[in-house]
Simulated scan of single mutants.
Amino acid sequence: MTFLPEASSFAGRVDGLFYAMLGLSTVVVLGVFTTMLVFAIRFRRGRHVDRSGESHRELGIEMVWTLVPFAMFLAIFVWSIRLWIVMRTPPANASTIHVVGKQWMWEFEHPDGQREIDTLHVATGQPIRLVMISQDVIHDVSIPAFRVKQDVLPGRYTQLWFTPTRTGTYNLFCAEYCGTDHSRMGGVVVVQTPAGHARWLASHASGSLADQGRMLFTRFGCAGCHDAGSSVHAPRLDGLYGSTVPLADGRQVLADERYLHDAITLPGSEVAAGYAPLMPSYKDRIDEADILALVAYLKVRGTDREIPHAAR
């Protein structure tokens, strides 16, 4: 029997929970079927035993067979919830990599602009946060060796995170049926040493994702409305990310990645207070990879992390 390698910080913990649940279920199944077998043999046809049906209630026995299994399964539930919370809470020092799923391929965008197709390079010991979205239908990122899996949805960001612990090449699958070539929508995760990964990043540098977004901001004409010198009455975008935005309908929303994405693709859904809904939708006009770059630029626009004017 060949077992999957444990290649992430989650793998051993997920396996421990699985084997504990398997063991507990085995104990319960054996207890139930052993009792059934004993009674089937004892009360088989032709056996001289008391069949009067007289009731003998033993409160202690009933309490034990009710409360003990309940306590064991409750312990499994608490264990799983705690692990689930950890697996859904990436650390502050996690490196964010953006993922776009489309029929039938995976695109990976590193913070410094390195772009990969169906292959993801990461380093051991470095927490990795994948921020994912689909170009078309529902996909699902599954990396069995890391014991992580997450749906990738159109029009909505989802995320997962992991910390690789072993160098090597590990399979990545789409675990949600997504069309004709679903079975071919796979890839690999290449886990390198920190030094080896640094060399790989340096050899594939192509400008940061935010820098790409700045160029797209100009190419798509966004500056014509949203720059300070514009004659169009449109919201200013400097320092927008992370702020609270009052809306025309009286609500207030946080300008997070989801808000910025929807402002580009569904601008009429959340109109900023004091502005008319004039912006056209860019949904289906630009692909999700470009939207990711635009969002990356808007996150740093007007901050000390914005691309210097000298570099433009």
Rank of each mutant, 00 (worst) to 15 (best):
T193M: 03
P111N: 04
W200Q: 06
L22C: 07
R44D: 12
Q150W: 02
F70M: 06
P194G: 01
V191P: 00
G207A: 01
D256V: 01
A293C: 08
V189D: 08
H204F: 02
G239H: 02
G125K: 03
Y170N: 04
Q103E: 14
E58H: 14
I264H: 10
T180L: 14
V64K: 10
A311P: 00
A293H: 10
S183N: 13
M72E: 09
L172G: 03
G196K: 09
S281N: 10
H182K: 05
D151A: 15
A311K: 12
E6N: 13
A195H: 11
V32N: 05
S230R: 05
P308G: 08
R44V: 07
D118F: 07
L247F: 03
G46I: 02
P277L: 04
V271L: 01
H309K: 15
A198T: 11
V64S: 07
V191K: 03
M36T: 07
H139I: 03
R214H: 10
E288K: 15
V152E: 12
I81Y: 13
I81D: 12
A71C: 03
G268F: 05
H226L: 00
G239L: 01
A195T: 13
E109M: 14
V122L: 00
Q150M: 10
C225G: 03
M87D: 02
V232Q: 13
H139F: 04
V245M: 06
V32H: 06
I138A: 10
R147V: 04
R305T: 02
A40K: 13
L216K: 12
I307A: 11
I117M: 14
V28L: 15
T163K: 14
G221D: 03
L292S: 10
D227Q: 12
V245P: 06
R219G: 00
A210R: 02
H233E: 12
L120A: 05
R42I: 03
D140N: 15
D227S: 12
R44H: 14
L201N: 10
T169V: 13
S55A: 14
A263Q: 06
V68A: 09
T34C: 06
D304T: 11
D249K: 08
V122H: 02
T218E: 14
A289C: 09
P127H: 02
C225I: 00
H48V: 14
G242M: 07
G186V: 04
I133R: 13
G229P: 05
G187L: 00
M279K: 08
G16W: 12
